[in-house]
Computed example of a mutant assay.
Amino acid sequence: MLIIPLKDGENIERALKRYKRKFDRTGARKALYERKQFEKPSVVKRAQVQKAQYIQRLRDQESI
């Protein structure tokens, strides 16, 4: 459970924004999605390899 202490005179909108940011950093949304949608390990590994290849191509183009 996330706890966001309110500071004296703090706007509720600002506190809500801090809560959302903290929630995103915990990775809870991603974990929920991964549990909901199963992917085979081979598909996950293939996606990781493709992402690494894409990033490598970007870095190679940048160095030229």
Rank of each mutant, 00 (worst) to 15 (best):
M1F: 09
M1Y: 12
M1N: 10
L2E: 10
I3F: 14
I3G: 12
I3T: 14
I3Y: 15
I4G: 00
I4S: 01
I4K: 06
I4E: 00
P5M: 01
P5N: 13
P5C: 06
P5A: 08
P5D: 04
L6V: 01
L6D: 00
K7R: 03
D8Y: 04
D8G: 01
G9S: 09
G9P: 03
G9H: 13
G9C: 07
N11W: 08
N11T: 11
N11A: 11
N11H: 06
E13W: 09
E13T: 15
E13Y: 14
R14A: 11
R14H: 13
R14S: 14
A15Y: 00
A15T: 09
A15K: 06
A15Q: 02
A15E: 03
A15S: 07
L16I: 15
L16V: 15
L16N: 12
L16Y: 14
L16F: 15
K17H: 12
K17I: 01
K17F: 10
K17A: 07
R18A: 01
R18M: 02
R18D: 04
R18W: 02
R18N: 04
Y19T: 02
Y19H: 04
Y19V: 02
Y19P: 04
Y19Q: 07
K20P: 01
K20F: 05
K20C: 04
K20V: 11
R21H: 01
K22R: 10
K22M: 12
K22D: 14
K22L: 10
K22E: 13
F23M: 05
F23P: 00
F23H: 12
D24M: 09
R25F: 11
R25W: 12
T26V: 11
T26E: 14
G27F: 04
G27N: 06
G27D: 03
A28R: 12
R29P: 05
K30D: 12
K30Y: 05
A31R: 07
A31H: 10
L32D: 09
L32F: 11
Y33M: 14
Y33N: 10
E34R: 03
E34M: 02
E34I: 04
E34A: 02
R35F: 05
K36A: 03
K36T: 06
K36W: 11
Q37V: 05
Q37C: 02
F38I: 04
F38C: 03
F38E: 01
F38N: 03
P41H: 09
P41Y: 14
P41S: 13
P41W: 10
P41I: 05
P41G: 06
S42G: 08
S42L: 03
V43A: 15
V43S: 08
V44Y: 00
K45Q: 12
K45P: 02
R46K: 09
Q48V: 09
Q48I: 15
V49S: 06
V49Y: 08
Q50N: 13
Q50Y: 13
K51C: 05
K51A: 12
A52T: 04
A52V: 09
Q53N: 07
Q53L: 10
Q53P: 00
I55Y: 05
I55F: 11
I55Q: 09
R57G: 11
R57N: 15
L58M: 15
L58G: 09
R59K: 12
R59N: 11
R59Y: 06
D60R: 14
D60V: 08
E62S: 01
E62H: 07
S63Y: 06
S63K: 14
S63L: 13
S63N: 06
S63I: 13
I64D: 15
